[in-house]
Design a protein around this nucleic acid. Structure first.
Length: 486
RNA sequence: GGCGGCAUGGCCAAGUGGUAAGGCAGGGGACUGCAAAUCCCUUACCCCCAGUUCGAAUCUGGGUGCCGCCUCCA
């Protein structure tokens, strides 16, 4: 079996073949740090985090780099609005980014280069392009001449002839300076009062696309395996990255280009400009949504498809997560009863349930089909959930303990590949303040009340116990079992 | 207008040639004093038309609808 990925460059699924066996160089386009991240960002980074986790699970050593764009008009505007500085705004939202993503259990990249820390590399690259006659400077700006690259447009499938100049109706002074309306800025002359760096072209700052080209080259080399980002970055951002890098190096920038689908609200893309966005922190804090629910919501669809963010979808994911969570907690809650040695020690990879592993891998190998992979998790979780209930209600499981142990570890291992984790609850036996004996005693009183057909009293005792986190289960034979919830 | 993608049950979503995974929601039943939990059963001919084929949700052509990009954007 081999992993196949849909490559935007070829518009086909292709078998994944790294440049160097066993290792994967992966670059992810990060955020411009001028505001809190919204669910669109969450979707994107959950998707790529999952790809990374899966590659590692498949045995690859992954080098994962993600940038921060920390110089940009919007950041500067924000700084003005907040009476702050560009650096302060960047720092604030970078910190917020990490807070949000950590909560979503998105593993940190190996490196987070920033545009403002990559000025040297950016200038070197621009200079190289200039030397090769691909870039030209005018009035302190430097532009990339798109006509100089014959395959410009290969990623997005655009042809320069098909593009309509000024289709957006916007005309600014930049247009006048450009040789071709589709030329884009590599370097922008400083405007009064804005941060700038000295350069051969005068004081100024980098354009947007060039930073990624420079960072990829600095951190990962001329050619990498996988370049990922939101589908809205295909054009012009990634197209321009390719143009810059490949014109400079003469080598492919990336062999596989992966793009995630958008998060929609009411059928429309969630975006800042439409004002229909929900920030991650609002969803998690004000919405009271478990971060794992967000993850499950995202993973419920294949990463390339658009997903609609609705209350119903979150509600469904919430219920789904409860099932998975029950399954993931099984070992912690029932392991001791079932005589398992130690639920926290590592479980050997080769002792996982082979059928589940194969099913999971088959789905994931098919362009990271997480929806299919989740079906495997649900199968395991439902089974464990059922066994847990049998254990609580009947005092024994149907399946042998050692088999359950394998299934539980398999579920935990596979869920981990999807970044779905549960923190085992600390058993709060003291919460009720009642000893086991006291509980048994109350149950005996209730049984007596029931026998006397004093159901009001029986229900009162049951409700009291329930309020203290003790659930009672009347059994067909007449006995009553109990267990602590929470 | 150009480029790309999508269209599967009430909702979400797998399945890419052999008579439709899974999740959520719903219905029926068992059990119970009631309840909770549990257990069992149950809901699709895959947007439309034509074609290829012994056979198509799955391939081809056409149509319709929706989304994204073409301006900053995950």
């Amino acid at each position: 079996m081999s992993l196949t990925l849909y490559n935007t460059l070829t518009r086909r699924k292709e078998a994944f073949q790294p440049l160097e066996p066993g290792t994967v160089k992966m670059y992810c386009c990060g955020v411009t740090v001028y505001d809190y991240c919204h669910l669109g960002h969450a979707r994107s980074y959950i998707a790529w985090d999952t790809v990374r986790r899966y590659l590692e699970w498949r045995g690859y050593q992954v080098q994962y780099v993600q940038n921060f764009t920390d110089i940009d008009d919007k950041i500067l505007r924000r700084a003005r609005e907040e009476g702050s500085t560009m650096d302060a705004v960047s720092e604030k939202y970078i910190a917020a980014y990490f807070e949000d993503m950590d909560r979503l259990n998105i593993r940190r990249a190996d490196e987070y280069p920033r545009a403002t820390h990559t000025i040297d590399g950016i200038q070197r690259l621009i200079h190289e392009l200039e030397t090769k006659g691909i870039a030209y400077a005018t009035d302190g700006d430097v532009y990339y001449a798109v006509r100089s690259k014959t395959d410009y447009g290969k990623l997005s499938g655009r042809k320069l002839e098909d593009l309509e100049a000024g289709a957006s109706g916007r005309v600014d002074e930049e247009v006048v300076k450009k040789k071709d309306p589709f030329d884009f800025a590599l370097w922008k002359a400083a405007k009064p009062g804005e941060p700038f760096w000295e350069s051969p072209w005068g004081q100024g700052r980098p354009g947007w696309h060039i930073e990624c080209s420079a960072m990829v080259r600095d951190r990962l080399g001329d050619s990498i395996d996988i370049h990922v980002g939101g589908g809205d970055l295909i054009f012009p951002h990634h197209e321009n990255e390719i143009a810059q890098s490949e014109a400079a190096t003469g080598k492919p920038l990336a062999n596989y280009w992966l793009h995630n689908g958008m998060v929609n609200v009411g059928g429309e893309k969630m975006s800042k400009s439409l004002g229909n966005f929900t920030t991650i922190r609002d969803l998690l804090d004000k919405g009271g949504v478990d971060p794992m629910v967000m993850r499950l919501f995202v993973l419920g669809a294949q990463y390339r498809k658009p997903i609609d963010f609705t209350d119903e979808a979150i509600a469904a994911a919430t219920n789904g997560w409860k099932t998975l969570k029950d399954g993931l907690l099984f070992g912690y809650e029932a392991g001791a009863t079932l005589g398992w040695q130690n639920v926290t020690t590592a479980w050997p990879q080769d002792k996982l349930d082979p059928q589940a592993i194969v099913a999971f891998q088959t789905s994931m190998d098919d362009d990271i089909n997480t929806a299919g992979a989740l079906a495997v998790l649900f199968d395991l979780a439902k089974k464990l959930q059922r066994e847990a209930n049998l254990l609580i209600h009947q005092g024994q499981t149907e399946t042998a303990s050692d088999q359950l142990e394998v299934q539980w570890h398999t579920l935990v291992a596979l869920a981990d590949v999807l970044g779905l984790e549960v923190q085992p609850m600390v058993k709060e036996a003291e919460v009720s303040g009642l000893s086991d004996d006291a509980i048994e005693d109350l149950i005996a009183q209730r049984s007596a009340a029931k026998k006397a057909r004093d159901f009001a009293e029986a229900d009162r005792i049951r409700n009291d116990l329930q309020a203290q986190g003790i659930s009672l289960i009347d059994q067909p034979g007449g006995g009553t079992r109990w267990h602590r919830t929470v």
